[in-house]
Write a protein that binds this DNA or RNA. Structure first.
Lengths: 202, 202
DNA sequence: GACGAAAACGAACGTTCGTGCTATTCTTCA
DNA sequence: TGAAGAATAGCACGAACGTTCGTTTTCGTC
């Protein structure tokens, strides 16, 4: 019972990286098996369908995301530091070595936006949770007095998402080395607009 | 020689819409053929490979994009009107009925960012051209005195792209009906920051 | 060391993919 | 109107897909 979980984890690790390149649909059991020196059927036995594999890849990716981005950021003090931590770690996540194809969720989001089913549903759930983290962090910053009281906190979340997606696009498709610096500038502007004056010029 | 071009055009029209849903790779000759009441081989004969079909779909999409977004916008006067026209028509493009899966290029960009080849190369070329249109429109607006002289016009282009991508994400994946209004607000803020003061309070 | 269970394998399945052929039908133009 | 040529259909192919099955290897426990 132990050995099985070990290889299952190894499979999911590799599958997450592969899916970041080719997508969940592009992920192939045969290719994944050869990459891991496993037989197709041996790998397949761990998950009992392709869809179950896709779901578990998503689940695995989300767990890593929480551990590497969300949790350490929530350890930062409320307000500007926490907000910056979220952004910086989000950027780092999209470049991390286990994700050679960029953010798994960006790939999955575009791929699944028109294909109903449990995989899409789970992804939407994850995205909503992540947006909620951003919104809540902003609202906590408002409570603490770091940010202005804004009418629509979700506007900030969508804007922040845009900065990230634009970075992803410019960096991964256009291979523009200035994309990262521009993403930071854009986020700075976003944050600057939300900061209350005394925080602004400290 | 006339009939052939006619059906070829019909094929490309339908293929563009289908590809906006399932991507260029997900686009399948068999599915496309049945949708058009054609035989697989009959359709295939028009393009001599899948890759050629993908390239022509991209070409076709770009031509429609120029005709529906770029050209009418460039008919607007320089400065704010032209910039707003570009944005509005870009938004409209992503929602247009021949693209049931959203912007074809967003789908293709994510799909191709890790798969080298001529299709990716062509897409990158298109994206660069489109960014150049945005940058040039901004620079012309500066010349005319509508916008501040900014250090990095491409920053504006990347930010504008981000607004669009965030809209796409919130709208298509999360089905958030407020996504469009937020996109407009975000673009307004972007434009407002670039406008020179006398233009700002007119 | 032996035994039961878990894990991995190898071969085969039905289907679909892109891609070639060879006919057949339809257009076009002298 | 009839011949030339383009457009489409029909059929078959090899490869890859997810999936199933029976067998073999490996593991954990007594």
């Amino acid at each position: 019972m132990r050995k099985g979980d070990l290889t299952r984890q190894a499979i999911l690790d590799r599958a997450t990286g592969l899916a970041s390149k080719v997508g969940l649909e592009g992920l192939t059991i045969g290719a994944l098996a050869t990459e891991l020196n496993l037989s197709k059927s041996g790998l397949f036995a761990h998950f009992h369908s392709k869809e179950a594999l896709e779901l578990q890849v998503l689940e695995h990716g989300a767990a890593v995301f929480v551990e590497r981005v969300v949790r350490p950021s929530l350890a930062q003090p409320r307000g500007e530091p926490r907000m910056r931590a979220l952004f910086e770690r989000w950027l780092g996540w999209a470049q991390s070595s286990p994700l050679p194809g960029g953010c798994l969720f960006v790939q999955a989001a575009v791929e699944l936006d028109d294909r109903p089913g449990p995989v899409r549903d789970r992804l939407v759930q994850f995205q909503r949770q992540w947006l909620a983290v951003i919104v809540t962090s902003l609202e906590l910053g408002i409570e603490v007095g770091a940010f202005h009281n804004v009418a629509d906190p979700e506007q900030f979340a969508q804007d922040m998402y845009g900065v990230m997606l634009a970075y992803h696009h410019a960096s991964r498709l256009l291979r523009d080395p200035r994309a990262e610096a521009r993403a930071r500038r854009a986020f700075d502007a976003l944050l600057h607009a939300a900061l209350v004056p005394n925080e602004k010029h400290r």
